[in-house]
């Protein structure tokens, strides 16, 4: 049994980009969870293990930079993948 694969979150409104990134990261052995909008991402349960976020800057509504600010603020945390 190998250890649980590290988690990478992908937030991108573009389906093609989201899908291809997911594919690439998965092929490299990561666990990947993708979201089409920052709101969807924030709505999930907090994730406590080390994780990484690949974030698109240009998105309708809340942009990538907005999301980054929210996460960097005190109390900000990555949500859970489950």
């Amino acid at each position: 049994m190998t250890a649980v694969a590290p988690m990478i979150f992908v937030v991108d409104d573009d389906l093609a980009v989201r899908k291809s990134l997911t594919r690439l990261l998965a092929s490299a052995g990561y666990a990947v969870t993708a979201f089409a909008a920052p709101r969807e991402f924030l709505a999930c349960e907090p994730y406590t293990d080390p994780c990484c976020l690949v974030l698109d800057v240009r998105m309708p509504g809340v942009t990538g930079l907005d999301l980054q600010e929210t996460l960097a603020a005190p109390g900000g945390a990555c949500p859970s993948s489950s």
Binding site: A16, V17, K19, S20, L21, R23, L24, S27
Partner: peptide, 21 residues
């Protein structure tokens, strides 16, 4: 540029994934 970059990013990621597969 963004409009063009999106599909190019997807193509690159897909190609790299395929090579790994």
């Amino acid at each position: 540029a963004h409009e063009l970059n999106q599909p190019l990013t997807a193509i690159l990621s897909n190609a790299q994934a395929a090579r790994r597969l």
